[in-house]
Design a protein around this nucleic acid. Structure first.
Lengths: 414, 414
DNA sequence: TCTATTTTTTCGAGCCTCGAAAAAACACTG
DNA sequence: CAGTGTTTTTTCGAGGCTCGAAAAAATAGA
């Protein structure tokens, strides 16, 4: 049931709002915060005094951006990098990457490892993750007092509660509650996120002009994934991370998909599908386990060079993506799209067929107004998204908690 | 930007919460409201005293449900039917229907008219709507002081702001800002809603057990529509009412749809499509303008009787709906489905192929756990939904406003 | 009639936000 | 270089709101 607003909630929410404004706007003055939040100057003054006292915010130098103005110069408020740290863990095909990030969002440490995720046992996979996290946390060079939160991202399906990986193409293992495991191991709150959702989160921070309330991030990689932001909120399914754009049906009974079903968008537009079509192996050919980025780049080069099966493969991918997007647009209306991943670098080969297909669908009404942007490198995006997700959690839950917790936190710092 | 919470918002929100609790639970006592909202008894007591003083709530008789309990009996709080009235206007193919509903949700007046919506001019259509509303408002028999809000529903696409009909299959006219027109004409706040969304709203009130946070209402009528509730919120597109399930693509380049495109789900599952297939007219045959409910019932009867083109037509409809649902489930995960409209009465003919198709999709993982419910009559549902939508608006915006407005309202009643 | 029990109201305390005024910190001016 | 104007930030009292505890109200059972 919906719950009433208690009196203490007021301060908590407004604290969170101030922190969010500072994180969003960089170095806003108290006056600017008052303007964007709609709260009075007195309230902002009181809250920011508290936050500075607790070591969460810091006052910037007043002589920041050339003070040409007449009166008392604005004092920019910033996030105190030492207020907390968070950790990101990104698990992708044969690759594990962690980073420690300070409260202001700067990477202070990182470590990467190659693994053979496709053949590893459940225990080995979990072991590698906990080990790498432990190494970073216990690193004596790291002068971070404590990691306040861990965010994991994995390609595949996670549950709505952000506790577990349910299924992932990078491992035969299923249902690993990574978040619970890490929490139990280190006593640090953790969440398990879908990689494409983190891409969307990152895009929102990178370019809030373009990616604000409604947009679509599509990962064009070995598989096809999607992160969807609607009305300013990350979209998730009712039970899982949802948004499995790659497994919408493009052609009933069509090409064989990595998921074992037939006719999914991914079975035409995933790297393995483009590869399969370029090699003219037939739609029933078993998907290959991996195609290297270099191989895909070669494929794209060939397709650009001459009209042959390679070009046709990209055309088919464009068609599948276009019809898929058309169906998606029928549900949510058109929105800006960011194409991410190695095949986004071949978007020139994909776009014509994609636009042609969209024009045949309900999305076609605004065909020309749909904008596409490309970003070939997904990993940094996923990492950034994880970092922002973890930091936002700290902002909201740790630094803007109920009264009791806030009191003690205040004492421990003051 | 997100806006801070002012001090006055507190009372406003908690007032809204109390009203919502009373509307939801029937005759809750103050103690029960305190329990469901999590607010203290004192707060509930104060707020309900205000609301009773303002004539919004009324105290029920204490001897309501056999007072077997020991102590002071609970006093049920109810909505005062005379506190306000709302009006619903439902515009469907060749049919216009309005109703006046009191604050407690009872219909106090209604009127219906047959029209030829497909051939009417823009002015005539608007004229009929304003005329019927005026007749109901100015009816001397009606002892309702004033209508506080009007909710219109129409088959087709409306804008996100709930101001205008953008496109509708029931008329060649487009972009009619019905809400603005009625507001200008009568000075009463109005909203323009999508019919299927109102079906979903109604289902939520009718059976909150089954249809709570996540469910799908699909209209199987001449066209195919959908109302979607996700995470307890009505789902809408970024620009329009969205949720155009009927125009997701089932087969690229496939059967001719009423919308002029090809291969939409509706081009296989709409009444005209079933009709077309049953008559073996071919997928390119121009959709007929209307098929009567009686004709559809005859068709279903024939299909049940013998294996022929009629049965095959329903099979194809089931397949299209199944693959469409499969794609939808890939995005949002499976959820309970309510099939509404005349073809829902033929769901026995549709279901086998539908389930078979879903099993071939990402939704298939939970194939057996997906439940279908049928309701052949959409009109009462749409009307109910409109009524609840309008009443909820009154609850939230008129009876739980900012402080200034509340003060004056209080005075005028006291 | 008295007592136990449960619901509802009353009342003072504690917060929170707000507006107005004061204080602070600078640029400009002569 | 002191004085003035301007803008930002803080201070302070007022007004509201919710809460907990206690009181009042309303009933069933003894």
């Amino acid at each position: 049931m919906s719950v009433g607003i208690r009196h203490d909630d007021l301060r908590r929410r407004n604290r969170a709002m101030v922190i969010a404004a500072v994180r969003r706007d960089g170095q806003p003055s108290r006056t600017e915060i008052a303007a964007t939040t709609g709260l009075s100057h007195s309230t902002i003054s009181a809250i920011s005094a508290d936050l500075i006292g607790e070591g969460i915010l810091t006052e910037g130098k007043p002589n920041e951006a050339g003070s040409l103005k007449r009166g008392r110069p604005q004092v920019g408020l910033g996030l105190n990098p030492e207020a907390a740290a968070v950790m990101t863990v990104v698990l992708s095909l044969n690759f594990l990457s962690v980073a420690v990030i300070d409260y202001a969002g700067q990477v202070v440490a990182e470590e990467q490892r190659r693994l053979d995720t496709l053949t590893m046992s459940r225990e080995a996979l979990i072991g590698e993750c906990t080990a790498i996290v432990r190494r970073r946390i216990e690193d004596p060079d790291l002068d971070i007092r404590s990691v306040a939160r861990i965010a994991l991202a994995i390609q595949g399906i996670t549950d709505t509660k952000a506790r577990a990986m349910l299924w992932s193409p990078i491992t035969p293992q299923t249902d690993i509650a990574f978040a619970d495991i890490l929490e139990a191991e280190f006593g640090i709150p953790a969440t398990m996120e879908n990689d494409c959702n983190m891409m969307a989160v990152a895009l929102r921070w990178r370019d809030p002009q373009r990616y604000r309330d409604d947009f679509i991030a599509i990962l064009l990689s070995h598989g096809i994934g999607m992160g969807l932001v609607l009305k300013g909120e990350l979209f998730t399914g009712t039970h899982s991370s949802g948004g499995e754009f790659g497994h919408m049906i493009h052609r009933p009974g069509g090409a064989l998909c990595r998921c074992g079903r037939r006719g999914c968008v991914e079975a035409y537009a995933g790297n393995y599908a483009i590869w399969r079509n370029a090699r003219q192996l037939g739609e029933d050919a078993e998907p290959v386990a991996d195609v290297s980025d270099a191989q895909m780049r070669t494929l794209a080069a060939t397709a650009r060079e001459k009209d042959g099966p390679e070009r046709e493969a990209y055309r088919k991918a464009g068609e599948a993506l276009g019809y898929g997007l058309g169906s998606l647009f029928a549900l949510i209306d058109p929105a800006p799209v960011a194409m991410v991943g190695v095949s986004a670098a071949a978007f020139d080969l994909i776009e014509p067929a994609l636009r042609e297909a969209i024009a045949q669908t309900a999305g076609g009404q605004h065909s020309e107004s749909i904008s596409f942007d490309t970003e070939p490198n997904e990993l940094p995006l996923i990492r950034e998204g994880c970092a922002m997700r973890a930091l936002t959690f700290v902002d909201q839950e740790i630094f803007a908690p109920g009264v009791q917790a806030r009191g003690s936190a205040g004492k421990s710092v003051a």
